[in-house]
Design a protein around this nucleic acid. Structure first.
Length: 306
DNA sequence: AATGGAACCAACCGCCCACGA
DNA sequence: GTCGTGGGCGGTTGGTTCCAT
């Protein structure tokens, strides 16, 4: 059998049905492993990594065809992200039929959407420390994937046994394994012990003021993640206050060493803003844990409206 | 109907880690 | 102990589709 040399050109881009067929045949014969064998044997001009990705994200049996996230799934993603951070593979375990790529894609869209929405509603500001603290304190306790799936199955059984309970399908299983007993979702006015509200990484941060200054300068600004069409307006000469299109990820993870500070644009033009970015950033290793990050920031100084 | 922006999706890249030689 | 390799994962990018104007 003809074997591909290591230097032979690897194909990139979309997969054809024929390639999928060959890959499926490989999995049938060898199992979902030894991915580099596919290119080594000359079955496909694809890297092993590419083959594995194709299998995991598209060809693997049991994947959901309808890809759009339901409101329940969306809430679940928010809850789990608050708990695990950007551990998409871990989070994806709570979503049978979804891949980490699905979750990741949803999250990035979600954050962009909320960031945009947030630009329209600015109010009083708290410091980044408080914002990060919010991220931590709002984290909810989440069952393990195994426990979660077990509870899903149990819920399915219960649902089929008691058809009259239509609420159970709409509440967050993560927050509340027994949805009907969740005081937030079902008895919002009742005086019950406080429960952690489902956390929204954008809206749960306080609105921003019309004018504020950052102190000290932001450690990192995520300009490079601005993307093609969506970002062109910003770079083509409209450094309007707060118009920066946020990147996909850095605003999402409080544990990331580069805190995204979208509001560095507040009350400043693009040039000033760029000047404010330190040219040399400390390496990630300097941030051993979240407290290091928090300690590195002073609370923002609010300019008095008077 | 045309257009632009937003949303969605697929797939690549780079880093990291486990594991065997 | 080290090195190479395969595989996993998070981050990123680019193309396509949808939708509002």
């Amino acid at each position: 059998m003809k074997r591909k040399s290591a230097t032979e050109k690897m194909r990139k881009g979309p997969w054809s049905p024929e390639e999928d067929t060959i890959l499926l045949e490989h999995v049938r014969n060898n199992g979902a492993r030894n991915w580099s064998l596919v290119s080594f044997l000359g079955l496909l001009p694809r890297t092993g990594k590419s083959c594995r990705l194709r299998w995991v994200n598209k060809l693997r049996p049991g994947l959901k065809k309808g890809r759009k996230f339901t409101p329940e799934e969306e809430q679940k993603v928010l809850d789990l992200q608050a708990q695990f951070g950007n551990k998409w593979a871990t989070i994806a375990k709570y979503f049978p039929g979804r891949t980490d790529n699905d979750v990741k894609n949803y999250w990035s869209i979600h954050c962009k959407r909320l960031a945009r929405a947030r630009h329209d509603q600015r109010g009083p500001l708290i410091g980044i420390s408080d914002q990060v603290a919010n991220l931590k304190t709002n984290a909810v306790s989440v069952a393990s994937p195994e426990e979660f799936l077990a509870s899903e199955e149990q819920e399915a059984v219960q649902g089929s046994n008691s058809k009259g309970n239509s609420d159970s399908g709409t509440s967050s299983t993560i927050l509340d394994p027994q949805p009907d007993l969740n005081p937030i979702l079902h008895n919002p006015v009742q005086n019950l012990p406080p429960q952690p509200a489902p956390f929204d990484p954008i809206f749960d941060l306080p609105p921003l003021p019309e004018i504020c200054y950052l102190q000290p300068k932001p450690r990192s600004v995520n300009l490079s993640q601005d993307r093609h069409r969506q970002s062109t307006r910003f770079f083509e000469g409209e450094p309007e206050v707060g118009s920066m299109d946020l990147g996909q990820t850095q605003l999402t993870n409080p544990n990331h060493h580069c805190l995204n500070y979208e509001d560095g644009l507040l009350d400043s033009g693009l040039d000033e803003f760029m000047d404010s970015v330190p040219s040399v950033l400390p390496p990630p290793e300097e941030f051993d844990d979240l407290s290091d990050i928090l300690d590195s920031f002073e609370p923002p100084v609010l300019k008095s409206p008077h």
